[in-house]
Computed example of a mutant assay.
Amino acid sequence: MKKSTLLGGLSPQRFLQDYWQKKPLLIRQAFPAFEPLIERDALFNLASEDDVESRLISIVDNQWHLQNGPFDRLPKLKQKAWTLLVQGVNLHSESANALLNQFRFIPDARLDDLMISYATDNGGVGPHFDSYDVFLLQAHGKRQWKISAQDDLSLINDLPLKILKNFQPEQEFILEPGDMLYLPPQYAHDGVAIGECMTYSIGFRAPSYQELGEAFLQFMADSIDLPGRYTDPDLKATNRPAEISNLMFDKVAAELAKVEFTDDDVRIFLGEYLSEPKANVFFDPPSQPMSLAAFKKVASKNGVVLSRKTRMLYRGKFVFINGESLVTDKNDKTLLAALADERRLNGPAIRALSPDAIETLHAWHEDGWILVG
């Protein structure tokens, strides 16, 4: 699939310049003659798995209901107005993963997952907004979308879902298979199924600075070094025993002011944080582990590929994979960066790696992070 088709004739750079986080874009037949990548029953089976995040949203007697999976049983297909949302389908389907990879003109640090929404007639999740960019690809059936650039993003109280209180649609579209709608963050929208339908959502990561700040402080807790213990040999008697003294305040404040962080601290934190798989992601080690020698022989011939579930990033001298970081020499770093970018490394490149890097790849293979061939 050419990116010019994917983006309705726009180059990735033009799309980013004119639309990304600025305004919506409706792309008719972004994927011509598109067919669903996963059958309905297979999607339902995924929703029954413990390691798959899923939600069921329904309207019963004009009341919104939300249930979290896994699901042993779903409503009957003839029942109207229910929606099944299955997150991270790209982790469990090679074709879904290949579709998600077509959006890698956006950095991996921002690309999140592919969610599939299955809905019966009139199904939807109500008018809402997302805090991140999203591409909405119609995979099966039809869905009516209403969108609005409204500033009023207040929500209805006491609902299990975040539904806008005063949704005022400004535009309306009906999407058919292959059509796709891009929406920037905080753009109000409401999608309603016209008959049975499936919609694929390509979502992006947009952590809040508060979330990043809290995670960074936890990360730094392991590296802070403040030797010594509070002492006060010059302590004076007080007639206000409940007051924290200036002496204690000043000494503690001076010690805390010694806490510093470097650019490398931020690099390592960000790489490990952004490459950390979600809590429900589990890797499958090889059923027949290889010795280091056997792994080197096979990998040098057939190359390696990253597991669909592996998140691998790099910056500067650091390489990050599944929440871990390492520093390598210049040659190894170049090759491992190629593995992160291409999601694979061929045999000749494997042979060019140092013995230490080969040993690292072998450990990753034993953990199920990479596959041979």
Rank of each mutant, 00 (worst) to 15 (best):
R267L: 12
E214L: 09
D179A: 06
P355Y: 08
E366K: 14
F283N: 00
I106M: 03
K22E: 10
G228S: 13
P285K: 03
F320K: 05
A119W: 10
L339K: 00
F103G: 02
R240K: 14
L339C: 01
T231D: 14
A221S: 15
T334F: 02
F269G: 03
H128L: 01
L353N: 07
R110E: 05
R143I: 07
H365G: 02
V305L: 15
S223A: 15
W369C: 01
R55G: 05
L326G: 09
L111E: 05
Q138T: 12
L43E: 03
G178E: 04
L56F: 08
P12W: 04
D190I: 10
L183C: 11
P24D: 10
S131L: 04
E260M: 15
G126V: 01
Q29K: 06
H128C: 08
P348E: 09
I106R: 02
E243T: 03
V327L: 13
N331T: 14
N97P: 14
A349P: 07
I321A: 05
L371M: 09
P160G: 13
V305Q: 14
P75Q: 15
Y132T: 03
N322T: 12
A257R: 12
A221C: 14
L153N: 00
H65W: 11
H128N: 08
T120D: 06
V86W: 08
K78Q: 06
L326N: 04
D263Q: 14
A357N: 04
G228Y: 05
L217V: 13
V372E: 06
D341M: 05
S275V: 08
D250I: 14
F31S: 01
A237M: 13
S354Y: 09
G178D: 04
M312R: 03
L66P: 00
A337W: 00
L111R: 04
G195P: 01
V60P: 09
G303I: 00
L66V: 14
A98G: 10
W64C: 08
N45Q: 13
S54Y: 02
A340G: 14
P169R: 07
E366T: 07
P184A: 06
L212H: 03
H92R: 12
A254G: 02
V281L: 15
K251V: 09
G9Y: 07
R143A: 12
F295T: 03
A42I: 10
V304I: 10
T328Y: 07
L292I: 06
F15N: 02
K80Y: 10
A47L: 03
V305I: 09
Q29N: 13
L10P: 00
P286T: 15
M115R: 00
R315G: 02
N239C: 08
F167I: 05
N302A: 10
A237D: 11
Q144E: 10
E255N: 04
A30H: 06
N157L: 15
Q288T: 02
A293G: 08
D250E: 08
D284I: 03
E176M: 15
P289I: 15
W364K: 00
Y314F: 13
L137D: 05
K22D: 05
N101H: 13
D232C: 10
G347Q: 02
A119C: 15
Y118T: 15
E94N: 15
G178S: 07
R40F: 12
L99W: 06
F129R: 01
E172G: 12
L292N: 09
L326E: 07
Q168V: 14
D133V: 06
L111P: 02
V327Q: 12
H362R: 04
